[in-house]
Design a protein around this nucleic acid. Structure first.
Length: 415
RNA sequence: GCGGUUAUAGCUCAGUUGGUUAGAGUGCCUGACUGUGACUCAGGAGGUCGCGGGUUCAAGUCCCGUUAGCCGCCCCA
């Protein structure tokens, strides 16, 4: 094979695309119930947009972006995440009136130059939600509620909502010092790579898998325990609201998120079916982002949900139903009946049935075989006797049973 | 970006210490079946052994490189 798909990308053929389409339909139908309208933004954006928002300490920006200079020497990046482009589009369209809310839903590919593994691609796809202009913890709760309901709706069994608050930037600045003091002994004999990482974003040390570092971190206060009063109140009310809505969650102090724009609420939903990449989705509040790209100070909250990861779980749980079948395959029993077959095919299509026939006009045996392969529910056979009697021989391809159905009753029989 | 592992027919795989024309199951095609798929039986087609070098009288098998998948780290959806 001369050409193969680029590393970390996937082709979605009809045996799977119907699943994608049905997930998209369910996602947009559900989010529409909450007032979210679909937004579509470009595949590529100004490189700076992502540096400004995600932060240069995040690996997504400084290592994983697909970027290039176009023929006009513009520095372009394929979007590595969905939030910044949506906020940019919202600002650019000037859609918001002061004090009003905007709710957006989207489905988009994102691009990250990473080493592929299970649940990790270079072109993964995400469903996303952004709720702009809302300060209330009810907004955070709304996003989490939608996400949980979506996973229930599509049949992903057991999930866990992991919740944390990382406070405002002042809180995080203070907390950084706490972490660094706490692990100073550990830091001394670390590689420069580890030291750099620790210095750049100490919060990220918290979710480490390194046993030694974990031990060094024992006894450290959680960031949630050092929140400012306002953040504290927000976080408390969010938890209360989730409890009232019967949405169960687990407080987890090491959920810190990788993108710099998050503030206060952060959350993930995990499934035990995903291996090392355990998060089905990740989101939170990003009150500083709009301002960071030149807009008016605007509170906001959102989420990005990995579509491939949801599908991995559905597959593992055997929750993927069979794709829709063709209704009928019309067969000509002799060379003289083709005109009638073709007429009948188009009639059935007009009635709303998915219908095909053998374009190669081969022998009957071949046609029945093709009908079987096509996955059609029925073979509709037309020959000399059928034309004479005005009724088709309808063969149920699952059971093999045949009955004679008059042309006028055909539609009723097939439905 | 780092480490490990895998790559043989459309699919799932076997292939002994390097040794004739590389096998199996399944799928595919043809026929038994002159208006009928799935079952049975009998035939048949199909392989640059991921790709490129090297060692050797001889490489699917050994060595080096490379591409891709998978697993872990890292990162995150």
């Amino acid at each position: 094979m001369r050409y193969q798909r680029p590393r970390g990308t996937e082709d979605i053929l009809p045996d799977r695309s119907w699943l994608w389409r049905s997930l998209e339909n369910e996602f947009f139908a559900l989010t529409a119930q909450y007032g979210y309208g679909e937004i579509r933004t470009p595949t590529f954006e100004d490189y700076e947009l992502f540096v400004r928002t995600s932060g240069d300490s995040s690996e997504v920006v400084n290592k994983q972006m697909y970027d290039f200079h176009d023929k006009g020497d513009r520095h372009i990046a394929l979007k590595p995440e969905g939030t910044a482009p949506v906020v940019r589009a919202w600002l650019e369209a000037k859609v918001s009136l002061p004090g009003s809310l905007t709710r957006y839903a989207y489905a988009t590919p994102v691009f990250r130059h990473e080493r592929p593994q299970k649940g990790r691609l270079r072109e993964p796809h995400q469903f996303g939600l952004e709720l702009l202009g809302a300060t209330s913890p009810l907004a955070d709760a709304e996003i989490i509620e939608i996400v949980v309901r979506f996973y229930e709706l599509i049949g992903i069994g057991k999930t866990t909502v992991l919740l944390n608050s990382i406070g405002r930037s002042e809180t995080r600045a203070r907390y950084r010092e706490i972490i660094l003091n706490h692990v100073s002994a550990w830091m001394k004999d670390q590689s420069t790579e580890n030291q750099e990482r620790a210095a750049k974003n100490p919060l990220r040390l918290l979710d480490t898998k390194d046993e030694e570092l974990r031990r060094a971190l024992v006894g450290i206060p959680t960031i949630a325990s050092v929140l400012e009063d306002e953040s504290r109140a927000h976080f408390d009310r969010l938890q209360k609201t989730l409890n009232e809505r019967s949405i169960s969650f687990v407080l987890q102090a090491d959920i810190v998120r990788g993108l710099d724009y998050y503030s206060d609420t952060v959350f993930e939903v995990h499934s035990d079916q995903l291996g090392a990449q355990g998060a089905l989705c990740g989101g939170g509040r990003y009150d500083g982002l709009v301002e960071a790209i030149g807009g008016p100070s605007t509170p906001a909250v959102g989420v990005g949900m990995g579509i491939e990861r949801a599908i991995i779980v559905l597959d593992a749980l055997n929750k993927v139903a069979s794709p829709p079948r063709m209704d009928a395959f019309v067969v000509s029993a002799d060379d003289e009946s083709w005109a009638e077959v073709i007429r009948l095919v188009s009639e059935l299509r007009d009635e709303g049935f998915s219908t095909t026939f053998d374009l190669d006009q081969r022998g009957m045996k071949q046609q029945i075989k093709q009908a079987d392969r096509s996955g059609a529910r029925f073979a509709v056979i037309i020959g000399a006797s059928e034309r004479a009697s005005g009724s088709a021989t309808v063969k149920n391809l699952d059971s093999g049973d045949q009955t004679s159905i008059s042309f006028s009753d055909l539609a009723r029989y097939l439905s």
